[in-house]
Design a protein around this nucleic acid. Sequence first.
DNA 1: CTGGATCACTTGAGGGTTGAAGTGAAGGTG
DNA 2: CACCTTCACTTCAACCCTCAAGTGATCCAG
Lengths: 144, 144
Amino acid sequence: MLGGLIFNLEPALDAQLRRDAGLSLFEYGVLAGLSEAPDRTLRMSVLAAIADGSLSRLSQVVSRLEKRGWLRRTPDPSDGRYTLAILTDSGWDKVVATAPGHVAEVRRIVFDPLTKAQVQQTAAIARRILQAIAPDHDCLNDRR
Amino acid sequence: MLGGLIFNLEPALDAQLRRDAGLSLFEYGVLAGLSEAPDRTLRMSVLAAIADGSLSRLSQVVSRLEKRGWLRRTPDPSDGRYTLAILTDSGWDKVVATAPGHVAEVRRIVFDPLTKAQVQQTAAIARRILQAIAPDHDCLNDRR
DNA sequence: CTGGATCACTTGAGGGTTGAAGTGAAGGTG
DNA sequence: CACCTTCACTTCAACCCTCAAGTGATCCAG
């Protein structure tokens, strides 16, 4: 019964974003992650962790988002190995335009159908399962 | 907090199968679905619903599994529009060899970390969310 | 019958993801 | 200082998936 969830929840959220904003869920996660960061700026590796994807995947997605004008890259002046991803004003506008629809869909699919108790149960359950998947990976911070 | 789950649980199960059996989670679902069917035989469209994938995706995956000798295809004698997918003996052996490791991983990641109450809560929660995603899609049957 | 609609499935192009190898910068070590 | 290692990131090829068209088989109206 978890099976159905795993296979259908992410595609459902992805579909709403593609339909209404022309963004994949992962792309949205990247832009949203940046939008909440100080100076709307993050190192690529930090952004990859926040968006929950590999650095390789992020690198290519960021290239696309950069071509679309929603962010830009710059070497970190304090350490040339790091690359800073910076949300542009246009990217900020995109997030502002996109977030409400996404949030509404999450509410519609996840929060509205559940009781308050079930929402809390879900948090506890997710925490335990994630712990079993990645024991080290400290799960104090919520990822999106 | 559901986010992390959605992004990590399926990949974790997929990784175990690829590592230990050289099968993707979806490929395993196809073989396992057939292995539980009467005569180890199903119509492609039924198998697609069981494995929770599109017909197009199934068609291509079945081609690969057929090349590997784990199943074969035959037109349905009673209606030439249907195609029957039939698990071979070799495919059966593959499922028998693969299932224990997969089941153990599911247990390790999902069932062991949860209390009995949490497992039941999960079922109720998943049912409600799935209902919100696909109101028609009757959720009486558990998909894997 | 027969022409068109529908059904079940297949194919192919386009695009995204993965994993391994490559690049270039920074940090030791002698 | 070289040299090696490590790090952060990028690139490339292989693979997989999706979506839109294509292919037969069957059904049905006239």
